[in-house]
Amino acid sequence: MSIVSRKDKLFVYDRSGIWKLVDTNGDKEADRYEMFCNLFAQTAEIGVNPKAGLVTASDQQGNYVPSTPIQIIGNNQFYGHLPTIAPEEVYPATIAEPMVWLPHPVNPSGATQTWLIGAKMGPLNDELIHVGYNRPELFRVLMNDRFTRPQATVMSFERDFDFGSLNAQVNPADGQLYVVGFQVWGTTAKKLSGLVRLRYTDQPRVLLKEMTPMDKGLLLRFNAKLASDPASAERWSYQRSAKCGSPHLNLPGQAHHRRRGQALPDDRLHGLPQH
Protein backbone atom coordinates (compact mmCIF):
# COMPACT_ATOMS: atom_id res chain seq x y z
CA MET A 1 0.00 0.00 0.00
CA SER A 2 2.98 2.33 0.47
CA ILE A 3 6.78 2.30 0.41
CA VAL A 4 9.48 4.40 2.11
CA SER A 5 13.29 4.41 2.17
CA ARG A 6 15.14 4.84 5.47
CA LYS A 7 18.97 4.69 5.62
CA ASP A 8 19.14 2.75 2.35
CA LYS A 9 16.57 0.23 3.60
CA LEU A 10 13.18 -0.23 1.96
CA PHE A 11 10.01 -0.64 4.02
CA VAL A 12 6.59 -1.45 2.59
CA TYR A 13 3.17 -1.43 4.22
CA ASP A 14 0.32 -3.90 3.68
CA ARG A 15 -2.62 -5.28 5.64
CA SER A 16 -0.30 -7.27 7.91
CA GLY A 17 1.93 -4.37 8.96
CA ILE A 18 5.31 -2.88 7.97
CA TRP A 19 7.81 -5.17 6.21
CA LYS A 20 11.53 -4.62 5.61
CA LEU A 21 12.83 -5.75 2.23
CA VAL A 22 16.25 -7.37 2.60
CA ASP A 23 18.84 -8.08 -0.11
CA THR A 24 21.00 -10.89 1.36
CA ASN A 25 23.28 -11.57 -1.63
CA GLY A 26 23.89 -8.03 -2.92
CA ASP A 27 22.20 -8.47 -6.33
CA LYS A 28 19.96 -5.42 -5.66
CA GLU A 29 16.82 -7.58 -5.47
CA ALA A 30 14.95 -8.28 -2.25
CA ASP A 31 15.07 -11.97 -1.42
CA ARG A 32 13.81 -11.84 2.17
CA TYR A 33 10.83 -10.04 3.72
CA GLU A 34 11.13 -9.32 7.44
CA MET A 35 8.14 -8.26 9.55
CA PHE A 36 9.28 -4.95 11.04
CA CYS A 37 6.15 -3.99 13.03
CA ASN A 38 2.56 -5.21 13.28
CA LEU A 39 1.66 -3.67 16.65
CA PHE A 40 -1.22 -1.61 15.26
CA ALA A 41 -4.46 -2.11 13.39
CA GLN A 42 -4.90 -0.91 9.82
CA THR A 43 -7.10 2.18 9.59
CA ALA A 44 -9.10 3.67 6.75
CA GLU A 45 -7.52 5.95 4.17
CA ILE A 46 -8.05 9.35 5.77
CA GLY A 47 -7.74 13.06 5.04
CA VAL A 48 -6.72 15.47 7.82
CA ASN A 49 -7.44 19.18 7.70
CA PRO A 50 -4.23 20.68 9.15
CA LYS A 51 -6.05 23.87 10.18
CA ALA A 52 -9.22 22.55 11.80
CA GLY A 53 -8.00 19.05 12.73
CA LEU A 54 -11.04 17.53 11.00
CA VAL A 55 -10.48 13.93 9.91
CA THR A 56 -12.37 12.37 7.00
CA ALA A 57 -12.29 8.86 5.53
CA SER A 58 -13.94 6.84 2.78
CA ASP A 59 -14.76 3.23 1.94
CA GLN A 60 -16.24 1.30 -0.94
CA GLN A 61 -19.43 -0.66 -1.40
CA GLY A 62 -19.44 -3.98 0.41
CA ASN A 63 -20.95 -5.82 3.34
CA TYR A 64 -22.70 -3.25 5.56
CA VAL A 65 -21.59 -0.48 3.19
CA PRO A 66 -24.51 0.45 0.86
CA SER A 67 -22.39 2.63 -1.42
CA THR A 68 -19.25 4.81 -1.32
CA PRO A 69 -19.35 7.03 1.81
CA ILE A 70 -17.36 10.02 3.00
CA GLN A 71 -17.23 10.04 6.79
CA ILE A 72 -16.17 12.49 9.47
CA ILE A 73 -14.12 10.50 11.97
CA GLY A 74 -14.74 11.34 15.64
CA ASN A 75 -14.00 9.94 19.05
CA ASN A 76 -15.83 6.79 20.17
CA GLN A 77 -18.00 6.50 17.07
CA PHE A 78 -19.23 3.37 15.30
CA TYR A 79 -19.54 3.48 11.52
CA GLY A 80 -21.68 0.43 10.93
CA HIS A 81 -19.23 -2.18 9.65
CA LEU A 82 -19.30 -5.63 11.24
CA PRO A 83 -17.05 -8.64 10.54
CA THR A 84 -18.73 -11.12 8.21
CA ILE A 85 -18.31 -13.83 10.87
CA ALA A 86 -20.28 -11.78 13.44
CA PRO A 87 -24.08 -12.16 13.90
CA GLU A 88 -25.74 -10.33 11.01
CA GLU A 89 -26.89 -6.76 11.68
CA VAL A 90 -26.38 -6.90 15.45
CA TYR A 91 -24.87 -3.46 15.88
CA PRO A 92 -23.01 -2.69 19.13
CA ALA A 93 -23.76 1.05 19.02
CA THR A 94 -25.61 3.77 17.13
CA ILE A 95 -24.22 4.14 13.62
CA ALA A 96 -22.61 7.46 12.72
CA GLU A 97 -23.92 8.11 9.22
CA PRO A 98 -21.63 9.67 6.59
CA MET A 99 -21.79 13.23 5.31
CA VAL A 100 -22.62 11.91 1.87
CA TRP A 101 -23.11 8.72 -0.15
CA LEU A 102 -21.68 8.53 -3.67
CA PRO A 103 -23.63 6.19 -5.99
CA HIS A 104 -21.70 3.03 -6.81
CA PRO A 105 -21.80 3.58 -10.62
CA VAL A 106 -20.30 7.04 -10.11
CA ASN A 107 -17.51 6.10 -7.71
CA PRO A 108 -17.15 2.32 -7.24
CA SER A 109 -13.99 2.59 -5.15
CA GLY A 110 -13.31 5.52 -2.84
CA ALA A 111 -9.61 5.96 -2.06
CA THR A 112 -8.30 8.97 -0.11
CA GLN A 113 -9.09 12.61 0.62
CA THR A 114 -6.86 15.65 0.72
CA TRP A 115 -7.45 19.25 1.78
CA LEU A 116 -6.22 22.06 -0.44
CA ILE A 117 -4.81 23.93 2.54
CA GLY A 118 -1.92 26.18 1.58
CA ALA A 119 -2.65 25.55 -2.11
CA LYS A 120 -2.48 28.02 -4.98
CA MET A 121 -5.49 26.59 -6.79
CA GLY A 122 -7.62 29.74 -7.00
CA PRO A 123 -11.28 29.21 -6.03
CA LEU A 124 -10.53 25.63 -4.90
CA ASN A 125 -8.24 26.70 -2.06
CA ASP A 126 -9.09 25.09 1.31
CA GLU A 127 -11.61 22.68 -0.27
CA LEU A 128 -11.73 18.93 0.35
CA ILE A 129 -10.84 16.70 -2.62
CA HIS A 130 -11.94 13.05 -2.75
CA VAL A 131 -9.96 10.59 -4.87
CA GLY A 132 -11.76 7.80 -6.74
CA TYR A 133 -9.75 4.79 -7.87
CA ASN A 134 -11.72 2.23 -9.92
CA ARG A 135 -12.78 4.87 -12.42
CA PRO A 136 -9.94 7.34 -11.83
CA GLU A 137 -11.45 10.68 -10.86
CA LEU A 138 -11.18 13.62 -8.47
CA PHE A 139 -14.28 15.00 -6.75
CA ARG A 140 -14.83 18.29 -4.95
CA VAL A 141 -16.51 17.80 -1.56
CA LEU A 142 -18.52 20.86 -0.52
CA MET A 143 -19.17 20.85 3.21
CA ASN A 144 -22.52 22.13 4.50
CA ASP A 145 -22.95 22.98 8.18
CA ARG A 146 -26.45 24.49 7.94
CA PHE A 147 -27.93 21.42 9.64
CA THR A 148 -27.47 19.71 12.99
CA ARG A 149 -25.62 16.87 11.27
CA PRO A 150 -22.84 17.79 8.78
CA GLN A 151 -23.74 17.09 5.15
CA ALA A 152 -21.83 17.46 1.92
CA THR A 153 -22.26 17.68 -1.83
CA VAL A 154 -19.85 15.91 -4.17
CA MET A 155 -19.09 17.22 -7.66
CA SER A 156 -16.90 15.66 -10.33
CA PHE A 157 -13.85 17.84 -10.93
CA GLU A 158 -11.22 16.00 -13.01
CA ARG A 159 -11.23 12.57 -14.64
CA ASP A 160 -8.57 12.77 -17.35
CA PHE A 161 -6.28 10.11 -15.82
CA ASP A 162 -4.87 7.04 -17.56
CA PHE A 163 -3.74 5.40 -14.29
CA GLY A 164 -5.55 4.36 -11.12
CA SER A 165 -5.49 7.41 -8.86
CA LEU A 166 -4.87 6.54 -5.18
CA ASN A 167 -3.63 9.69 -3.48
CA ALA A 168 -3.23 13.43 -3.98
CA GLN A 169 -1.21 16.06 -2.12
CA VAL A 170 -0.52 19.78 -2.38
CA ASN A 171 3.14 20.44 -3.13
CA PRO A 172 4.30 23.27 -0.83
CA ALA A 173 6.90 24.27 -3.40
CA ASP A 174 4.39 25.41 -6.03
CA GLY A 175 0.98 25.09 -4.31
CA GLN A 176 -0.36 22.78 -7.03
CA LEU A 177 -2.08 19.42 -6.63
CA TYR A 178 -0.13 16.24 -7.48
CA VAL A 179 -1.95 12.93 -8.03
CA VAL A 180 -0.26 9.53 -7.87
CA GLY A 181 -1.41 5.93 -8.18
CA PHE A 182 -0.80 2.42 -9.43
CA GLN A 183 -2.85 -0.72 -10.04
CA VAL A 184 -3.64 -2.45 -6.76
CA TRP A 185 -7.02 -4.01 -7.58
CA GLY A 186 -9.63 -3.64 -10.31
CA THR A 187 -9.51 -0.38 -12.27
CA THR A 188 -10.64 0.89 -15.66
CA ALA A 189 -7.26 2.61 -16.11
CA LYS A 190 -4.96 1.28 -18.83
CA LYS A 191 -1.55 2.20 -17.43
CA LEU A 192 0.16 0.49 -14.52
CA SER A 193 1.07 3.67 -12.64
CA GLY A 194 1.41 7.41 -12.98
CA LEU A 195 2.09 10.82 -11.46
CA VAL A 196 0.45 14.04 -12.69
CA ARG A 197 0.24 17.67 -11.65
CA LEU A 198 -3.00 19.64 -11.70
CA ARG A 199 -2.12 23.30 -12.00
CA TYR A 200 -4.25 26.41 -11.70
CA THR A 201 -4.38 28.33 -14.98
CA ASP A 202 -6.55 31.29 -13.90
CA GLN A 203 -8.94 30.50 -16.74
CA PRO A 204 -12.67 30.96 -15.99
CA ARG A 205 -14.62 27.86 -14.98
CA VAL A 206 -18.15 27.66 -13.61
CA LEU A 207 -18.02 25.93 -10.23
CA LEU A 208 -20.73 24.95 -7.80
CA LYS A 209 -20.10 26.59 -4.42
CA GLU A 210 -23.11 25.39 -2.38
CA MET A 211 -25.96 22.88 -2.58
CA THR A 212 -28.56 22.94 0.21
CA PRO A 213 -31.82 20.94 0.29
CA MET A 214 -34.82 23.22 0.86
CA ASP A 215 -38.54 22.62 1.39
CA LYS A 216 -39.33 22.92 -2.33
CA GLY A 217 -36.12 21.87 -4.00
CA LEU A 218 -32.39 22.52 -3.93
CA LEU A 219 -30.60 25.82 -3.39
CA LEU A 220 -27.62 25.96 -5.78
CA ARG A 221 -24.99 28.69 -5.67
CA PHE A 222 -22.33 29.05 -8.35
CA ASN A 223 -19.30 31.28 -8.75
CA ALA A 224 -20.62 32.65 -12.06
CA LYS A 225 -23.88 33.14 -13.93
CA LEU A 226 -25.16 30.02 -15.68
CA ALA A 227 -26.01 29.89 -19.35
CA SER A 228 -28.94 27.54 -18.65
CA ASP A 229 -30.85 26.15 -15.68
CA PRO A 230 -29.42 23.07 -13.91
CA ALA A 231 -30.96 19.67 -14.62
CA SER A 232 -33.64 18.23 -12.37
CA ALA A 233 -32.69 16.17 -9.34
CA GLU A 234 -33.56 12.62 -8.29
CA ARG A 235 -33.87 11.20 -4.80
CA TRP A 236 -33.56 7.74 -3.35
CA SER A 237 -32.49 5.93 -0.19
CA TYR A 238 -30.08 3.14 0.75
CA GLN A 239 -30.45 0.21 3.12
CA ARG A 240 -27.53 -0.94 5.25
CA SER A 241 -27.39 -4.74 5.58
CA ALA A 242 -25.01 -7.69 5.74
CA LYS A 243 -25.35 -8.00 1.95
CA CYS A 244 -22.92 -6.32 -0.41
CA GLY A 245 -24.16 -2.83 -1.23
CA SER A 246 -27.74 -1.64 -1.61
CA PRO A 247 -30.12 -0.91 -4.47
CA HIS A 248 -31.59 2.57 -4.90
CA LEU A 249 -34.78 2.40 -2.85
CA ASN A 250 -37.97 4.42 -2.92
CA LEU A 251 -38.50 7.27 -0.52
CA PRO A 252 -41.97 7.57 1.09
CA GLY A 253 -44.47 8.62 -1.56
CA GLN A 254 -42.03 8.05 -4.42
CA ALA A 255 -43.29 5.93 -7.29
CA HIS A 256 -40.05 4.83 -8.92
CA HIS A 257 -36.40 4.35 -8.11
CA ARG A 258 -33.21 3.44 -9.93
CA ARG A 259 -31.84 -0.03 -9.44
CA ARG A 260 -28.23 -0.64 -8.51
CA GLY A 261 -25.91 -0.57 -11.48
CA GLN A 262 -27.73 2.07 -13.55
CA ALA A 263 -25.25 4.73 -14.57
CA LEU A 264 -25.78 8.40 -13.75
CA PRO A 265 -24.60 11.35 -15.88
CA ASP A 266 -20.98 12.25 -15.22
CA ASP A 267 -21.76 15.82 -14.11
CA ARG A 268 -24.53 14.88 -11.65
CA LEU A 269 -24.52 16.38 -8.17
CA HIS A 270 -24.36 13.84 -5.37
CA GLY A 271 -25.80 14.69 -1.98
CA LEU A 272 -26.94 12.88 1.12
CA PRO A 273 -30.36 11.27 0.46
CA GLN A 274 -33.04 12.28 2.95
CA HIS A 275 -34.42 9.39 5.02
Rank of each mutant, 00 (worst) to 15 (best):
M1H: 12
I3H: 05
R6K: 02
K7D: 15
D8F: 06
K9F: 05
V22C: 08
G26P: 09
K28P: 00
E45H: 11
V48A: 03
V48F: 06
V48G: 03
N49A: 08
K51L: 15
G53M: 05
L54I: 13
L54G: 00
V55D: 09
A57D: 04
Q60W: 14
N63H: 14
G74V: 12
N75R: 10
Q77V: 10
F78Q: 00
F78S: 00
G80R: 09
T84Q: 12
P87K: 01
E88T: 07
A93P: 04
V100M: 11
H104D: 08
V106D: 12
P108N: 14
S109H: 14
A111N: 10
L116G: 00
K120D: 11
K120Q: 02
M121E: 01
M121C: 13
P123E: 05
L128W: 04
I129V: 14
V131I: 08
G132H: 12
N134D: 13
L138N: 08
L142V: 11
R146M: 08
F147E: 01
T148L: 10
R149N: 03
V154S: 14
V154I: 14
M155W: 10
F157E: 10
D160S: 09
N167R: 13
Q169I: 14
Q169A: 15
V170G: 04
N171F: 09
Q176S: 11
Y178A: 13
V180W: 00
T187K: 01
K190Q: 13
L192C: 01
S193N: 09
L195G: 02
T201I: 05
D202F: 09
R205V: 14
L208W: 03
L208V: 13
E210K: 13
E210F: 04
M211I: 07
P213R: 06
M214Q: 15
D215R: 06
L220Q: 07
R221F: 03
F222K: 00
K225L: 03
D229W: 03
E234W: 07
R235G: 14
W236G: 10
W236L: 14
H248K: 00
H248T: 02
N250L: 15
L251F: 04
Q254C: 14
H256G: 02
R259Q: 04
A263M: 06
P265Y: 00
D267Y: 05
L269F: 15
G271F: 10
